[in-house]
Design a protein around this nucleic acid. Structure first.
Lengths: 149, 149
DNA sequence: ATTGACCCTGTAGTTGCTACAGGGTCCATA
DNA sequence: TATGGACCCTGTAGCAACTACAGGGTCAAT
């Protein structure tokens, strides 16, 4: 392989990505199909390494592949205002904030359920109990049963 | 349909679950196959409603289907100690804590990247820059490129 | 010549649903 | 009695974002 060129394994090591994942990115056209060697091995330029690093970094930060795709296409239009880039990042940040809030609420509830466990038998277990809301079943004369927790 | 029996739609409404999801739970044997009416409609007992409620509540609390399966099988052994139940719940709680910590770290990093955006052109955009660590090329044996901004 | 590490394609699995397509059933109303 | 609409049935395929083979080919060193 020529001096500057890299195998898929090199790329994988450099970016801490599985070889299969790189081929997957190629299949979904996130990475352009690289050249091939005489033996039909993929042969990457350093530029492709940069592109893959970008993708992996964005993925590590929790951007979806759709967002990554958009960021990549924006980053190619160097003279444009970076407003759209900023918007994507802010939107993602808001999503992360929502997720944190949701998990915090969940954590509180889970913690309180666990704290009630008296370590007795399953029959008396408060955890199981807390997970078993019994919905009331009300059969109405003129229609479908009305059921709620 | 007999007095106490419920259709799949009743169950869906009562537990805020899609009909397809209930059939999916049956397919993966999380719910037992119910009886059928003459017209081949699924016919559920209130007991099945309780089981589905349990599943949905646990899912809402972030337990995986594998964990739900385990909790369900434990909850059937009423005379056992609830140690195992407690362990699953605690393990899940620890997982939630890890996720919160990860997201908080991500949030900090994302926030700092965004704050550096000068709102100029894409060429000068710090967000894109922060996402584009240029890895050192060539065949390295150990370590990966420094992907920090 | 042989080994072993690497590469190739293609397909199927993962998790937890969700969305049809193409039919059948049930019941109230005209 | 016919018909319309709401509900139900099975089966299959799709989503994200990979991951894991199977069954082979290539390459460099010994």
């Amino acid at each position: 392989m020529a001096a500057e060129q890299l195998t898929i394994g090199d790329l994988a090591k450099a970016t801490d990505t599985k070889v299969e994942t790189i081929r997957y990115y190629e299949r979904i056209a996130l990475l352009p199909a690289p050249g091939r060697t005489r033996g039909n091995y993929r042969s990457y330029s350093p530029e492709q390494l940069g592109r893959l690093s970008f993708i992996r970094r964005a993925r590590d930060l929790g951007f979806s592949l759709a967002q990554v795709r958009e960021l990549l296409s924006l980053s190619d239009q160097r003279r444009r205002s970076c407003e759209a880039v900023d918007a994507i990042a802010r939107e993602h940040l808001a999503g992360v904030d929502r997720k944190i809030a949701d998990l915090a609420a969940l954590r509180r509830e889970l913690g309180s359920i666990i704290s009630q466990c008296g370590h007795g038998t399953v029959a008396e277990c408060r955890i199981i109990e807390a997970l078993s809301p019994i919905p009331t079943v009300v059969h109405r004369k003129s229609g479908k049963p009305d059921l709620r927790c």
